[in-house]
Design a protein around this nucleic acid. Structure first.
Lengths: 137, 137
DNA sequence: TTCAAATAACTTGACTTTCAAAATACAACC
DNA sequence: GGTTGTATTTTGAAAGTCAAGTTATTTGAA
């Protein structure tokens, strides 16, 4: 049952990433939710509230409150949408970008550490397989 | 930069698992937190409150409230610890075990679907690499 | 043995996150 | 132009969380 083993591994993998993320985020002063929001905005840059809410799997009502706080912290900013005056575009401020960049570096460092036991060839094989899997998700 | 690519893939992978989990759990009537608690108990069976709190990354105060609710729902039960009368052992009731088993089946089905693009050999290669990575986490 | 310190679980109060539903402003279509 | 749909915000209620304090029990040192 190779799938059964893989399933177990995914659960364990997901759990360990969660607790790693949890511990790293705690030191940043942001909540996990806030950091995740910064991450998603950082990756996609200038999202509408609706789009961002979907990606974060929360309602727009929830997001309004969350973005209010991040805006007060000076990490994100609302900009008017060019063609749709109902919409806002949410982007990172310079401080938000720095926060995003730092977290990004943490991710890379984490990835480097967990792949220490792998050769360069193995890392490429893993990336290739991951790519195939990601296409199905 | 093979690590950089892998890092990106891990973020995307984690995100997609999160949203899948989110949607599946919603149909179960439990909150994500509650389902995660059921999962951890199901995997380890009969944990002390302290141990369970550590694995869930919450304080024991938080866990007390959470277990109270799951106990009211008839999914978990507290049993006295044999040798330490300060401690409780938390385990799944038959209903809890069924909930756990169902969720476990969802995980396997999910794994099966995302690995549809992979040959049996590739699945085994992926498992092998995952195993090496898990050892570093 | 005895008692002070440590530990496990629980309680309480405050804060945050979340959603659903209602309100507001604007867009799109006929 | 008027109706319907869409994007966001507001509000009220429920759930999750922690820190700090409480109780019961265990551990270890005098």
């Amino acid at each position: 049952m190779p799938v059964s083993l893989l399933s177990q591994q995914l659960v364990e993998f997901y759990d360990k990433i969660s607790s790693w993320e949890h511990s790293v985020v705690k030191d940043s002063g942001l909540s996990p939710t806030q950091m995740h929001t910064i991450e998603v905005i950082g990756h996609h840059q200038d999202l509408r509230m609706k789009e961002l809410a979907e990606r974060l799997a929360v309602t727009t009502g929830t997001l309004t409150v969350g973005i209010d706080k991040l805006e007060k912290l000076g990490l994100v900013e609302r900009k008017p949408h060019e063609s749709d005056r109902r919409s806002w575009l949410v982007g990172l401020t310079p401080a938000g970008q720095e926060m995003f960049a730092e977290h990004h570096r943490f991710h890379e460092e984490f990835t480097r550490e967990i792949s220490l036991g792998l050769s360069d060839d193995e890392i490429e094989t893993l990336s290739g397989l991951m790519q195939k899997v990601l296409q199905r998700m």
